[in-house]
Design a protein around this nucleic acid. Sequence first.
DNA 1: CGCACCACAATTTTT
DNA 2: TTGTGGTGCG
Length: 788
Amino acid sequence: MTTDFEQRFLEARRAFVRRDFEKLNDRQQEAVLATEGPLLILAGAGSGKTTVLIHRIANLLKYGRASDSDELPEGADEAMLAALKEGGERGLAAARLDPVEPWRILAITFTNKAAGELKERLTRMLGEEGGDVWACTFHSACVRILRREAERLGFPSSFTIYDTSDVKSLMKHVVKDLNLDEKSFAPPMLLGEISRAKDAQIDAQEYLRRARESGDVRRIRIGEVYVEYMRRLFAAGAMDFDDLIAYTVRLLQQDEEVRRYWQRRFRYVLIDEYQDTNHLQYLLSSLLAGGTGNICVVGDDDQSIYKFRGATIENILSFETEYKNARVIRLEQNYRSTGHILDAANSVIRNNLGRKGKELWTKKDRGDPIRLYVADNEHEEAQYVASTILAAYGRGANWRDHAILYRMNAQSNQLEMSFKRNGIPYRIIGGTRFFDRAEIKDVLAYLCVIAAPTDDLRLARIINNPPRGIGARSVELAQELAQREGLCLMEVLRRADAFPELSRASLKMRQFAALMDGLSESAKELQPDALLDELLEKTGYLRMLEEKNTVEDTARAENVRELKTGILSYMKESGDQTLEGYLADVALYSDIDNYDRDADCVVMMTMHSAKGLEFPTVFIVGMEETVFPGIRSIGEPEEMEEERRLCYVAITRAMRELYLVCARQRMIFGRTTANRVSRFVDEIPETCLEKKNVPKGFGYHDRREELGFLSRPPAAKPPAYAPAPPKKKPAPSVTYEVGDQVRHKAFGKGRLVKMMPMGGDFLIEIDFEAIGVKKLMLRVAAMNMEKL
DNA sequence: CGCACCACAATTTTT
DNA sequence: TTGTGGTGCG
């Protein structure tokens, strides 16, 4: 029974803590103050989710469980209560209840970038203490745990991590060595199957056992591949991305001691983007939080767009059944977008069935209507976007305030060309990632082999790169010998003359082994960055790039130099000067981090990559059936819901202006097609839309298919409009020559200083008063400027 | 062994 | 249309 004093004390304490978080809205405060037990925060787009996460951690560090506990501190008396009411230092001392050591808080995000930002904001807000919070990704958390525990699994604590392409090439070898046909046992399919098995916690032996039981020959073969794949990873002391989590989960489940250690270690576990977790990650979270049961997950079921890579929305939908005493808090006030944009987002997502149900609202005005533009084709679509941005820039907007979102990376091409012609600075996010580039993989492979000469997979990658006369046949032979003798590949190379089979290549092999051994020696003396220089020099890798002297190779050499910058900044930031440390880190790194917010550029990316970002003006291009929603999702209700969530994500990136753009016809993969406007456009209320250049009757009016009314494919459906007649680009009606004074819509006044014929058009250079010389294509420039 | 040519396929992406 | 991977020839 609580006494009157207790009541007053608790009330005063809550008020005291709450004072620190006054700037937050009521829901947000609630989420910050509910520290104990399982908590699900359903955070709509733009609802200040990260802010809540940060403040929640701040609350834990400063006040412990004071805001959410009925427990009084030892020796609580009227004097303490008075101090609480008074505030100040003594009040703080009276309020805090078990403040948490920072390293007892585990905050998990999905990307390194998000983890980095979280860390940065924590340090900024809380000083050094904030930096000691474990803010990391699922994978890096597992690596940290496994570095300590790997030996229990028979792995060296210095295990290496194989990334997607390592794993792909390993799988190719396995398929080949098991004499399977690569067509019917395609490596990507096998890897997918293994990944799913790992997610379901079925290990290789178990998989094979079940396959044999079923008698399904194909499944037995796959089981054998799985076993062999795992055997080779283990032999190489390597784990793939799934293994990092699967092994950690297994250890926590099966090893009492390990489990007890880590469950004691973490008092509070927070998981961001919970809608993107898979089953294994769910298990990991609940195991780690299993000590105290203090698990807080933040997510938005409407923003779940990664089902294709194993995320299961179930984790969020069934949180309340998994955790019986769970509290649920909805954050629905949006601080990002105007009313029209939110109306559109709400109306679109409302068409989905499998959701918790949320409605975003804002105190902001309705703002500008959403603009719908129908272009003739993809060129005109790109030109419309470019002209609109030029006009905005002319009115004083920044380039960086504009983002263009598309469904597939392939769509960026036309936009890119159009931007080049118009002289608009742009940046493309995504596409081939830095660490996926061949030259970067090569150089990293060298570093891996220098650090761990037993790494056969990477050794095979570089053994004849640059070409040094050790052909594929010889490598294969050496690999067979290694397998037979139970040696690693490098050992065979070192002793190449002991194997007469290698006759012809043996000298080259010994030379190469000596080269690598020499570099391994240097690695003991040199810092990683200096080692990189030595490696590039001694292996002739840089020379190879320089000699070719093509545009691509110059870019490659540039990338290699960029890698050195990366190594230096790793050494500086982590304080770690070891090669091994860098390599371990780099395996988990991607280059989304390279998104430089300072550069003033228009940003182009897929809708997927845009998640978590916001821009004053957003263009969503390719708003057509078969493009968005993509052809593969049409007729598949589940897939369609995912596309719709993607649409919701895309719309809610916009703060003030949103443009939806589509083309009456478009060339995709070399074929011209005419598509109806996206059904998602139809789901937006007319009152939010301002239509431009939209022909009468142009629209998607047929939802029967999606609703499951069509069991048979419909008879050839007529396009909703006739294809536009091909128009020739208008030649500029005004003629220009060097020396002309012009006024450009975006760049202002300038003088034409150079004209060069190029592909039926002219590349012109204009010296603008405001920004100096700029290169443009005449035809497009002519549309945006006048002669003075 | 290295290079050139042809067939083929082709969302979305992080770790 | 573009890029990649496999095959065949010099």
